[in-house]
Design a binder for these strands. Structure first.
Lengths: 339, 339
DNA sequence: CTGAAAGCGCTTACAG
DNA sequence: CTGAAAGCGCTTACAG
């Protein structure tokens, strides 16, 4: 049978209260009894029951992380795990544990949120999402429960969130092309459902404007951002009769697909068409040509998200915070004119 | 204030016991009171406190997942998330939640295990590891707590585990080269610390033997499997004066590094040297040349791991089970002679 | 410095 | 079919 605080108390000849106090490190316990109790605990191999403690305490030291969309696709993208890693690292430092949700539909997702929040199992929630009108965000706001979202939400002023400055890094990337003399730059993988792509498109437009290049909507190919293959998006672009000299894809995986398509058509990258992606996946560096991309520092996004959440938990929802994690342009072969 | 079962009971004019029973779906409750209680629950927006329930129940419906090594690198490899996804999917179907550990050292890892197991917070644990003498496995065995490990452990008969048949798929891959007439095949990324690589080397040797090719240890380059870059391993190989006609790397990421090295030396893949990897990462298909690899079905590994764990939890540790997930050879350009 | 008691929010035999 | 009571394993004012 599992040994409890009472067993320890009995054998140590003290009250359960006392044992509880030495566990909690209460300073009002005499050195002598502390040592005695500690010794017995060791002998009996006693471990406090976290559940019981949580119930008495009303503090579980657990946060929930809701992974977007259907679980089936949830971990698909290489940077999601990176975010998780960041959250885990920050949580670990604060002695928090992480409960990962795994819903397969929006409905289930909401139910999970309700359960985690109302079930008193979790002290706060991190939402990984970047959908424009995210139903989970709506749900969380209704619940008045501490939460932060990774990815700028549409209701940005009422919510704790962390994100890159997607608009400005996209601006930078676009300028990188403009500065090299490109006039026709395509933008693949835009989706009005996803804030990230909305922001990135905005930065793209802003750069064009500065260079007095008229925005051409035919150069923007919408896509599901992660699901759609870059191959098909590139194909669509060409079928519109467009043949830009540079292509920006909203994700490296898309960019790889684009390059595959170009290869098949006998178009050389970067000599004929320059290409860049976003998110700097591990293989962008190995790819031939190595792929120009944007490092979003997903680890930091996760890390900061946890910090904001702690903040929100302890401040009792009174303040709204945001955190901008800097992104950096990583220029590689795919976007550089050969000299 | 959070509404409790007592609040509901009072307003519904029944006892807390009755409310508890309708929550539990106890059939001995009259349809009439059930509906009344359900209605009040809705009105008050009542959610059962999971922690309290767990304490009374002695069942938390939570499993722990221990991610190997330092958290910092934990989620690095693309197939870890896939395993997680499999676990999450199976867990979700069984109404289980997942607590992810995040330790940064072996010592911390053991502490986490102790806490999760002895703290009554978790009903079972899945260990993601494939180290040969894994200290966490030792710890778990001591605890007599339900657990399963993903990756064949050295103590394979005393432990629940799930894995591919790494030896046999490696055998197949090696034969794929032998059948094409290759006589000198290098094997990169072996590490005696990791069962996976041990098993894969075994399959490799077996195939050579069948073809009466003498095993040459100079063709085996040890490496940290995931950490080491394929680039440096390939370099080592060449510095030994070896120039095989085919190279097997224990991981696709290694293989990409190898190819990069070969490219730099002006060696063409697959014309001059054929290359293959393991784990079929998302980009292997996009790479130029596309990379021959082994699909390990990480999702299924995770899924099966959860099933075994359920088994172990309900059977009360009385039986030991294993589950072999089939892997498949995916032949692409990098290993095929041009016709 | 330490103990007795009440309480955290549930569940579940037991009795009716 | 339903309720009163005890219990799950802790914590924490309160009293001394």
């Amino acid at each position: 049978m599992k040994v409890t605080i009472n067993d320890v108390a009995k054998i140590a000849n003290v009250s359960p209260s006392t044992v509880s106090r030495v566990i909690a490190g209460n300073p009002r316990i005499s050195e002598e009894t502390r040592e005695k109790v500690l010794k017995i605990m060791k002998e009996l191999n006693y471990y406090p029951n976290i559940i019981a403690r949580s119930l008495a305490n009303k503090s579980t030291k657990i946060i929930g992380v809701i992974v977007p969309g259907t679980t089936e696709k949830a971990f698909q993208h290489p940077f999601l795990p990176e975010i998780l890693r960041g959250i885990a690292s920050a949580a670990s430092k604060n002695k928090y544990k992480i409960l990962i949700s795994s819903a397969t539909s929006i409905k289930e997702e909401k139910e999970t949120i309700d359960e985690l929040a109302n079930g008193a199992i979790t002290e706060g929630i991190i939402l990984l999402t970047s959908r424009v009108k995210d139903p989970c965000i709506q749900e969380m706001m209704k619940l008045r429960f501490p939460f932060v979202v990774v990815g700028r939400p549409s209701q940005e002023d009422k919510i704790n969130w962390v994100d890159n400055n997607n608009s400005s890094i996209s601006y930078e990337l676009t300028r990188h092309f403009l500065d090299q003399g490109h006039k026709e730059i395509a933008f693949l993988g835009f989706s009005k459902e996803y804030m990230v792509t909305v922001d990135r498109l905005e930065g793209y437009k802003k750069a064009l404007e500065e260079y007095n290049i008229k925005f051409d909507s035919k150069l923007v190919v919408e896509g599901e951002f992660i699901d759609d293959t870059g191959y098909s998006l590139a194909k669509k672009l060409f079928e519109r009769g467009k043949k830009p000299s540079a292509i920006i894809a909203c994700d490296d995986l898309l960019a790889f697909g684009v390059i595959k398509y170009l290869n098949e058509k006998g178009i050389k990258v970067p000599q004929d068409i320059a290409v860049a992606g976003f998110n700097n996946v591990p293989l962008s560096d190995y790819f031939v040509p190595s792929l120009t991309s944007v490092e979003v520092n997903a680890f930091n996004l996760g890390y900061q998200a946890f910090q904001l959440l702690m903040n929100s938990i302890s401040s009792n929802l009174t303040s709204i915070n945001r955190s901008i994690v800097s992104a950096e342009l990583i220029i590689r072969e795919s976007s550089l004119k050969k000299k």
